[in-house]
Design a protein around this nucleic acid. Structure first.
Lengths: 198, 198
DNA sequence: ACCGAGTATAGAACATCGTTCTATACTAAT
DNA sequence: ATTAGTATAGAACGATGTTCTATACTCGGT
């Protein structure tokens, strides 16, 4: 027996490659993220990555698009109460990042050598930012963020979350208790940015 | 002529390699950061990177250490008025990042495959964080940041700056005017975090 | 049940990467 | 002027992403 490994059904190849890619990225980081290692993990031929994705960059793009789509969905289901939107959105953002570390790494943390997201992938990312913008506009209907235009306020919200979370993922976050310090941080930013009357 | 290229004097090799490495990183990003390309730019043999640094990772470590040293120095010369420390430190931080993009990339933006800073390099980075901590403690003498312990407040300050700047460097900062929006952002965080009495 | 189109696979091949090694030729100090 | 030190060129190794080819499996239509 074993003259040749079992052949994987076509429909299973893409999800198994995605799963393997995310696992490898989570376990070994970008340095372990190689075509041969991913294929080995997925029990699939290296060539499958070229037949089902556009090579390594295509796989990264698939992770990018899935990541921004998931983040957008997570942000959209936050509180319907405009008064809580800043707090809830920040919480949802951090939860997404810590729950989908591999996705977040591709989206924001690591510039993979050779990988440039396609124009379509960029529009998906833009749509996620526009979701943030819409959340801000909704909050502005009850007087929050009234000092800034929506784009700038959305950028501040994003910066707040990404700053804390990315340092956390790089393990250069020395906060005594990361969960609590993040809460204190976004409450503080909320006081100063969202409810201010400078 | 030209049976062999001019030989570069020993003392010039290290600075020229450093300069070439930073240039290449700034121009071509991590994907262009290869031994052969850096040596070509410095008009030096590839082997020089092994004789004068510990290979590619050694060169990255040199950039890391220089970067954290420069950042620490820039943060230490900020305002002696404790009331302005938050504002001045944030300004100095962003200025450093935008002026030393290649350094900042190695320090915070890109996990280079295979590169792990040595224990000594980590202590240099820690010293920079402790500088931030000292700045916070100084501000606390006049009642600023009084709600938090110094480590947590320093982490908030760092997160604020890194969040805005890193998205800026990744070119996913859509603020109408980055300079002004950053100022508004840190003023807002200052109101909410530094001067709060929650 | 069979047969043929589609496709998953193995493996060789290529350029480039980081790295190591060797032999050569230059430089600077004695 | 001689010698020790070292910058250089170049070959070599394994690993990488990628392309190509030939093989062998699978599944849908008859």
């Amino acid at each position: 027996m074993a003259t040749r490994a079992q052949r994987t059904p076509s429909q299973l190849i893409e999800p198994e490659l995605m799963a393997a890619a995310l696992e490898i990225l989570g376990e070994s980081g970008p340095e372990g993220f190689t075509i041969r290692a991913i294929a080995r993990r997925a029990k699939v031929a290296p060539m499958a990555i070229y037949n089902h994705f556009a090579g390594k960059d295509g796989l990264l793009e698939a992770i990018w698009i899935e990541g921004f789509t998931l983040l957008r969905r997570d942000l959209e289901v936050t509180s319907i109460n405009p008064n809580n939107k800043f707090f809830d959105t920040a919480q949802a953002y951090r939860k997404f990042a810590l729950t989908h570390r591999s996705h977040y790494t591709v989206m924001f943390m690591h510039r993979f050598i050779g990988f440039t997201p396609s124009p379509y992938a960029v529009t998906v990312a833009l749509a996620t930012f526009q979701t943030l913008e819409r959340l801000v506009k909704s909050a502005q209907t009850v007087g929050i963020f009234s000092d800034y235009n929506a784009v700038d306020a959305a950028q501040m919200l994003w910066s707040t979350c990404h700053g804390f979370v990315s340092l956390e993922m790089l393990d250069i976050n020395f906060a005594t208790n990361r969960d609590e310090t993040f809460l204190e941080f976004i409450r503080g930013v909320e006081r100063g940015v969202a409810y201010s009357n400078k």
